[in-house]
Write a protein that binds this DNA or RNA. Structure first.
Length: 490
RNA sequence: CGGGGCGUGGCCUAGUCCGGUUACGGCGCCUGGUUUGGGACCAGGAGAUCGCAGGUUCGAAUCCUGCCGCCCCGACCA
């Protein structure tokens, strides 16, 4: 743990990987492309999960659980969907092992071949809609608002801790509605939930928009998304919400009796965020000293560190800190008193900075005698000595200040790196500088592909905010009615 | 799947070109002592089938052959 991080400037990618490992968030597992999420990292994910889960429930959703395995035939029922996912599916073909005849271990028993292979879910639309067929008969069964917390597997070529792993954790909402309008409204509502979570809890400003046809979810009519800007100028898709139209209802024959006695296909949405949000959180706020966490998601908001010489001093200072910790806890703050006598205080300071604990309180003999305490902010790396008597109120306000300040800092950076361009030269320069680039596009997938090929930039989204404005495509010069947002992305 | 790099105690690594006693060093770990307001110091200690399998040789971490795995860069993607 004594090592220093590579700086962001020197090698952003290396900085990220080292930070994830050294802050004890996750590590590579022995299984290629898969990671072990360590307790500290998982605690952050649990916070995210708890908050989101409550937000889903507050908007009328309930949780359920569907199988990990999907019969191969289900996946092929929706043509676009299977085309989108087929290339990255793990497939179960056998159900038994046996001892190898040469004694070298176990081998797959060829006699235990499955009649129909099972796909390890890359997403659950198919098995859920197959099930919904039996759940939905009438308009009275609608809307159906279900979410599941699960793991999924997508066999990607290249992986990165949290940002793209072969197996990842996520939630997927799958809803069924009576009308197209209602389904679109649901997709938009959940996008707002995601945006509120990102901004209000992660302190991460996001751009809400709609994906172009090229970037749309396989099987969706429309994909809404939130896009965030990372410190290295690359965009990260942080959440998606899909209007699926009647595609899955058609594929799985899910019809309902309408109010006027007819039969109609159900309208659908699906929406999800994943452990990728961990990557977003890390890359939005952290610095060269380590992780920086927004207080609202920090497993430990305040750490209290005693400084002492000898056992007597230790006893009295730890007692004082325990008292303060009790008061902070009573005020609803997540605290930890680190009275581990085998680690020195300086070591602890560095350790909690690396782990992104928002506020550190330190009390030494001088403070103890004078009734003061040292308050250190992780985000600004500043310290002040204050009167210990007013500590609870001070810390409460400080945590709010830090939460807001992290958002403001990220919002300022996102704004400053967003550029509006009207020519190809400006466009190229803006991309190299990093950040979002607002530009006109002729609306064709061909031009989008061409730009992607030439610059590695993709259209992150067509912003939802009204911004109709006539112009010409930066690449082809064809007329355009609206600017779209380009960026290089993760 | 293309291009590059790398496999040596838990982690990082020297040694490999040019084969030769007991495999260098650091971090971490254990014990004892001194320390403690920003990642302490001293002394002692434990811990390694040198990725795997063959081969060459009196002798292989080192040379040869085959295999496996991982990382990075690309294409693909949440």
């Amino acid at each position: 743990m004594a090592s220093k991080l590579t700086s962001r400037e020197a090698d952003y990618s290396k900085w990220y990987n080292e930070l994830v490992v050294q802050a004890d968030l996750a590590q590579h597992s022995d299984v290629k492309g898969c990671m072990v999420i360590k307790p500290y990292g998982f605690a952050i994910w649990e916070r995210m999960k708890d908050v989101l889960d409550q937000m889903f429930k507050d908007t009328g959703h309930v949780n359920a659980y569907f199988p990990l395995f999907i019969p191969k035939s289900y996946l092929s029922q929706e043509a676009d969907h299977v085309e989108g996912f087929a290339k990255e599916c793990a497939v179960v073909t056998h159900y038994r092992l046996k001892n190898a005849e040469d004694g070298s271990g176990v081998v797959v028993d060829p006699d235990a071949k499955l009649e129909e292979e099972l796909i390890v879910r890359p997403t659950s639309e198919t098995i859920i809609w197959k099930t919904y067929k039996n759940w939905i008969q009438s308009y009275r069964d609608l809307p159906l608002l279900v979410n599941q917390w699960a793991n999924v597997v997508r066999w990607e070529m290249r992986t990165r801790l949290f940002l793209r792993t072969t197996e990842f954790l996520w939630q997927e909402g799958h809803t069924a509605h009576e009308t197209s309008e209602e389904a679109v409204a649901e997709a938009r509502k959940m996008l707002d939930v995601y945006a509120d979570f990102a901004e209000g809890w992660m302190a991460m400003p996001v751009l809400k928009g709609i994906k172009t046809a090229n970037e749309r979810f396989a099987g969706a009519l429309d994909t809404y998304c939130i896009e965030a800007m990372m410190q290295d100028g690359k965009a990260l898709q942080a959440g998606t919400s899909h209007f699926l139209g009647q595609n899955f209802a058609r594929a799985f024959d899910v019809k309902f009796a309408t109010r006027d006695g007819g039969q109609e296909l159900v309208w659908a949405t699906s929406w999800g965020v994943s452990t990728r949000l961990m990557g977003a959180l890390i890359m939005t706020h952290s610095d060269d000293a380590g992780l920086v966490l927004p207080p609202k998601l920090a497993p430990i908001e305040v750490v209290l560190v005693p400084i002492y010489k000898g056992e007597d001093q230790m006893a009295e200072i730890v007692t004082a800190l325990n008292g303060i910790a009790g008061d902070l806890k009573a005020a609803g703050i997540r605290v930890k008193v680190d009275d581990d006598d085998t680690k020195r205080s300086g070591w602890k300071f560095a350790e909690y900075e690396l782990k992104g604990v928002p506020v550190r309180l330190a009390m030494g003999p001088r403070d103890f005698a004078g009734g003061t305490i040292e308050v250190a902010r992780r985000d600004t790396q500043t310290k002040e000595i204050i009167d210990a008597a007013g500590i609870v109120q001070h810390v409460k306000e400080l945590l709010d200040t830090i939460q807001q300040s992290l958002f403001d800092r990220a919002a300022k950076r996102t704004k400053e790196t967003t550029t509006r361009v009207d020519s190809w030269e400006e466009f190229l320069a803006a991309l190299d500088a990093g950040g979002f680039v607002e530009a006109h596009w002729d609306g064709t997938p061909e031009t989008e592909d061409l730009i992607k090929q030439e610059t590695k930039a993709t259209i992150r989204c067509i912003p939802l905010t009204e911004n109709h404005e006539s112009g010409v495509c930066i690449r082809t010069g064809a007329p355009s009615e609206q600017r779209v947002v380009f960026a290089r992305a993760y």
